[in-house]
Design a binder for these strands. Structure first.
Lengths: 203, 203
DNA sequence: CGTGCCATGTAAAGCGTTACATGATTCA
DNA sequence: TGAATCATGTAACGCTTTACATGGCACG
């Protein structure tokens, strides 16, 4: 249920807003550690309101659609604080690119290298955005406590993206330097066709 | 549908095996970039067999339950190769710990620091395991092409875990050094109670 | 005699994405 | 006139987790 807590955190730290605004916050700043689509956000907000963790008020607007502004309640704040205290596990990683790397001998070198280059550029672009945000924020030592915490989330994003870029570079160099051997992408059939179960009888 | 391709890759690279064996492979080596539970694996394998991407054979065993050993087919191999060529997006990140960090001013410093320390140790432990595996594998330059690709997946895992450890250390130092200010965890109510929508009328 | 490994499954619930849908305003 | 932004929603589908279920063997 961490989406709920992501929403609560945002309402707490960046103030009350509508589902639509939350969506934009996710696109912007939260995106480096959480993502959510709009049906998910609207649905979750309604369920949070039912629980009494947030409170919604309709804001009538002129020249644009009305909006429903949510703010975190005391109960919601208490819930969030309690949740922070419960030890959590790291996210389970599901990374397509590693599957592609593992089975990369199936395709020509250039295909794999192109995929790596594409991903490198993607992470590089995110990295630039984060660098800019960190610049705007200023030195971590000149922050308030909450500012320091905000800095740390951006810093995590920066490290994450930089690490991806560095690995992609490493991978591209190493792959380029390693010759494809006999168990290449057109001969793999030979090695897997022969089933060799260690024990037991084939039926 | 990348679980399907993760299973195909494993059958291709590490050879034919049962659902149960795949589960263990996931726990072991694949875990650093993909995770799957056993209902998921068994179900996916049946669906892959229906598609003709894998082929199952029952192996009768003595002293232990029979097992169903799956091997990748030519169609499956072709499908996997085709999939590698399709550009993919980075995984969407969903990281509890960053939400906790962002809203960390809600709890006492020690609570947050304890959570960070816990996570640091977890990543450190995974890092040690990966280091060992990399040692056993040997130098990346002495590998076959497939060996190089395997190395790169482990290397990614190593970098990932090391980066987490480094960030946790950074975070703990910085948090310890920053005094909690007035907007502390017991006074937050004051700042959020007052709704301030920029435009429009409250109803 | 209890725990853990081997080996596979079902069923329900929760979480997440994608596509479809609306309707006004603003800007090029 | 067409596209983008504002603002919210439904419906269908797929992926993932968790709990429940079975049953023999080996080891301490």
């Amino acid at each position: 249920m961490a989406l709920a807590h992501a929403l609560l955190s945002s309402l707490l730290v960046d103030g009350a807003c509508s589902g639509y605004d939350l969506l934009k916050r996710f696109d912007d700043c939260i995106s480096c550690f959480w993502l959510a689509s709009h049906p998910q956000i609207y649905k979750e907000l309604r369920s949070l309101e039912q629980k009494g963790w947030v409170q919604g008020e309709t804001v009538i607007q002129v020249g644009r659609p009305n909006k429903h502004v949510y703010s975190i309640t005391d109960t919601g704040t208490a819930e969030l604080a309690a949740w922070i205290g419960i030890p959590s596990q790291p996210t389970t990683i599901r990374e397509d690119l590693m599957i592609k790397t593992l089975a990369g001998h199936l395709v020509p070198k250039d295909t794999l290298l192109a995929e790596l280059a594409q991903r490198r550029d993607l992470h590089q672009a995110k990295l630039e955005i984060l660098k800019e945000k960190l610049m705007l924020l200023g030195a971590p030592t000149s922050q308030s406590y909450a500012g320091t915490l905000h800095y740390l989330t951006l810093r995590r994003g920066q490290r994450y993206e930089a690490d991806w870029v560095a690995w992609c570079d490493e991978a591209m160099v190493l792959i380029a330097a390693t010759p494809m051997d006999k168990i290449g992408f057109n001969e793999i059939g030979l090695t897997t066709a022969s089933l060799t179960p260690e024990a037991g009888v084939l039926v």
